[in-house]
Design a protein around this nucleic acid. Structure first.
Lengths: 142, 142
DNA sequence: TATTAAATGCAACAGTGTTGCAAAGTAAAA
DNA sequence: TTTTACTTTGCAACACTGTTGCATTTAATA
């Protein structure tokens, strides 16, 4: 399975994204490091065991806003979250990847693709594209 | 702005999708007919004025399950719904369209595209693709 | 260490969606 | 048309998700 990304230097990452380093935030980032795919609130809550629900929501909101993580909406499912690339800012998330949901292992991963498709619609100005794919992942096929 | 689709014969449509024809369901379908773009729960609730919240949720769920409407998730926004094509079944929704969100008028429309992009990832088996685009729609540009 | 700003925790609440059950409505056969 | 079987609706009650205001604690910086 594909690794989204890993946080090597947590202190730097938080600083880079203009967030203070706190024990709670490090605990949450550790969980993202532990999983090689996108995770849901449920998973994070289970991993944390002992936590404050409100603080968690505020932390996640701050992480999304400041470009540490991005939200992945998979139709009819729980919203999932995955680490962003370092270049993502609070202005714009910039990903050259698609979100892939495996029907077999149920994992959602961010998969980088070489040539991102270009779609043009007459009279429409397309500024952003988000692509969700469903199927069977590499690991589940072998 | 692009019309998603229209329901001509409501009785037939409901029967075709194996749902009984009831006054409430017809009222909900009428609302979809009235709007040429995807609408949110909020819009439906406002249009209905007088309704039962629980019945509405159950109706929407039945419509999605039986292939009358499809759900459109636009990141960070309210979920929207649009009429399906007649061929959609309860087994599989089949759309050759992308979901386009206009930043100016905030409308979400289903836009048919001639050649749906083909994405291939080594070792991955892609079965479905869902594409969300954001930008400026035809109407807002002129 | 002192100061200032940010993060956390608590209480309370609003919105969203669900379930069980009884009543009303619909479809189809007698 | 009436009967019957099944589906839909409405009510009450509830669970889950996410938010806000405010007091307290913690982190960053001088």
């Amino acid at each position: 399975m594909q690794q989204c990304c890993k946080v090597k230097n947590m202190k730097n990452l938080l600083r880079l994204k203009k967030l203070n380093e706190t024990p709670f935030r490090k605990r949450v980032l550790d969980i993202f490091n532990k999983y090689p795919y996108a995770i849901s609130m449920g998973v994070i809550e289970k991993e944390l065991k002992d936590y404050n629900r409100i603080t968690l929501y505020r932390t996640m909101k701050a992480f999304v806003k400041n470009g540490l993580i991005h939200e992945i909406l998979m139709g009819g499912e729980e919203t999932k979250f995955a680490l962003c690339k370092e270049i993502c800012s609070n202005e714009a998330h910039q990903h050259q990847h698609i979100h892939f949901k495996c029907k077999q292992c149920n994992s959602v991963t961010c998969v980088e693709i070489a040539k991102f498709p270009v779609i043009s619609l007459p009279n429409y100005k397309i500024e952003e594209l988000e692509i969700q794919a469903t199927g069977v992942c590499a690991a589940c096929q072998s």
